[in-house]
Design a protein around this nucleic acid. Structure first.
Lengths: 348, 348
DNA sequence: GCCCCTTAGTAAAGCGTTTTACTAGCGCAT
DNA sequence: ATGCGCTAGTAAAACGCTTTACTAAGGGGC
């Protein structure tokens, strides 16, 4: 593998000249330029990235930390960030925390070690003080999708509160007055905001008494299953469920289906995220859609701005991206029908 | 940020000593060892990875190239590889080709530039000669999931032919004699193998005349939609469809549903991959399941073996991981019923 | 003829490790 | 007394690039 000095020798100039020429910090007369280019081609010279990084003190690579890559939501998010990073000529080092707090800290450390130029960080749990401290000590970090309250770093989220309002308004307008909210733990900002918007708008649109039950937990199928089991024990049962993530929704449907509860006849169902092929479920699920691609893109955009301002800390902005309601067939007006079994057909 | 010579100064020894001690290639009496450890702690010293990589000539990082990260199958695959890489202390640089051949070549190049220690490469298109040449010129490469025929590198696939046989045997045993195979292009090894196994076993189990229609294309929803449209025009229509990827399956179901074709009454449906929440579809879809996690793990394992043998080229092994048939409700014996509309219920 | 400016470069000092090859000193057996 | 082997290190050369500060040569203006 040829190196700079091989090229320099072949072209009959010094390494400085080659380096500066190739990096555009030196312009040369045509003859010399051509000599160098020829030497590069013939030797198939390609700069050694490790040397370059050591010398320049940066990596041209950023880190992306997500809780999990396999779930549909994070998979799309990763895809969006990767695409944008590639477009900008940046490498992407991917880390999944698999919900282990220790890993979050470890990966944040890898940023501090100046291993990476910057990092996009996605958590999915309520931040504890250790995480907050770690995040605080980092520069060139942007928080995506979920907040770490108190952290003074740029943040990019979807407009969770507006999503909650859309959901609340939609269910209320359909006539629902008794609903189950399946959401993120109370100390997670996304969960709190979704709930706040939801409750607010339910009340505003209903214009009368409203009952909102709550089951909270992580954004995973098990929380959905749990919620469904709790739902089955409620008397009277709420007439609608708002599941604030696709993963929760999937768990919920599993249990509901096993219990022979039909949607939307027995209960209406409203989702959040809208990533998985919700349109193919039985019935197709109405949901609030997150602008996942934009989230990824904006996070990277914000990170880059942070990098540009040489002053360590960037302004702790918070950017909220709009969500949309995708109407399908899982929400209907409530019925008063009490018996819960009807047309079992293509449910096993 | 402290460096090695700071530590050396503080501990009153040479940098060599510190470096060798920290890397375990020098053992020291307790007193010295303690001095060094103290200095490291107090200065919060952490080795500069760029320098280390330059010096050692390796990165402790591998690349993973996939066609796309957002799809459920590749998302899981990425997750599996990431998990294993992390366990081994290796960084993972992720690249998505988004089905652009030029990108595959570019990313393979990034391996050749000794940027990375090794690479796991997943393609999803029929290999052309440019790709083959590029792959051939690479060391420390392992092919995952899809073959590049002629490449002399280690390969890890699921047992596509066995999967095809399972599918064929299952449909035949259910009584189907006229089927539609929706598969990868004929020049893709995975597609060819799935088809070969499928056809073989259909014939063997049927023990009589069999009709197999084929629609081939990329493993994406559009191919499924296309296949469904073609299916609708066939007369007589096949009684079962074998869709050899989740993505194809999704497209297929969309169109079938719009055309009011019910599953499995009007046509039986059998999938492949079994990653997406197929159990929540209407009806739950029977499918051949790929061992995605194992695929990721084994690919990394094989890559590591390749790295160990200092001799550039590793034995071009081909490892086949077993698949399983997950029985659900989308396959039934064929009916002779001709009218295609019946119990429209929870399909919009 | 002198000074200054521009062009066309270059020497050398980093960047922070790792690693090879070496040494100084000491105890011990011969 | 000498050679050997062991302990406890060390000096210095890589690794391959970037970048700062510098120079030599040529040309133009006065």
């Amino acid at each position: 593998m040829a190196n700079l000095s091989d090229v320099a020798k072949k072209a009959g100039v010094s390494v400085t000249t080659v380096s500066r020429f190739l990096n555009g910090s030196l312009s040369l007369p045509d003859a010399r330029a051509h000599q160098i280019r020829t030497a590069v081609d013939e030797l198939r010279y390609v700069p050694n990235p490790h040397a370059r990084r050591l010398s320049r003190g940066r990596s041209d690579a950023i880190g992306l930390v997500v809780p999990d890559i396999a779930g549909p939501f994070f998979a799309r998010l990763v895809a969006a960030v990767e695409e944008e990073a590639d477009r900008l000529g940046l490498g992407l080092v991917l880390h999944a925390t698999l919900n282990r707090p220790a890993r979050e800290l470890r990966y944040l450390d890898s940023l501090r070690m100046r291993h990476l130029d910057g990092m996009i960080f996605v958590t999915n749990r309520a931040a504890d003080s250790a995480l907050l401290a770690a995040v605080r000590s980092c520069q060139h970090l942007v928080l995506l999708d979920e907040d770490v309250p108190g952290a003074k770093v740029p943040k990019v989220f979807c407009d969770n509160e507006a999503g909650g309002r859309m959901a609340g308004g939609y269910l209320a307008a359909m006539g629902h007055r008794s609903v189950l909210f399946v959401g993120g733990e109370a100390d997670m900002v996304s969960g709190r905001r979704r709930y706040r918007g939801f409750e607010q708008e339910m009340h505003r649109v209903s214009d009368g008494p409203v009952r909102i039950e709550r089951v909270l937990g992580r954004y995973i199928p098990e929380t959905g299953r749990d919620a469904a089991r709790r739902f089955l024990e409620m008397a009277p049962r709420p007439t609608a469920i708002f599941a604030t993530s696709d993963e929760m929704l999937i768990g919920l449907i599993e249990v509901l289906r096993d219990a022979l509860v039909t949607i939307p006849d027995d209960v209406s169902l409203l989702g959040f995220d809208d990533i998985g092929p919700l349109h193919l479920f039985a019935p197709p699920i109405t949901a609030i859609r997150q602008p996942v691609r934009d989230l990824g893109r904006r996070a990277l955009g914000v990170l880059l701005e942070t990098l540009k301002t040489e002053t360590g800390e960037a302004a702790p902005t918070e950017e909220l991206l709009p969500v949309t309601l995708i109407e399908r067939a899982s929400v209907a007006p409530p019925t008063t029908r009490l018996k819960a079994t009807a047309n079992r057909k293509d449910m096993t």
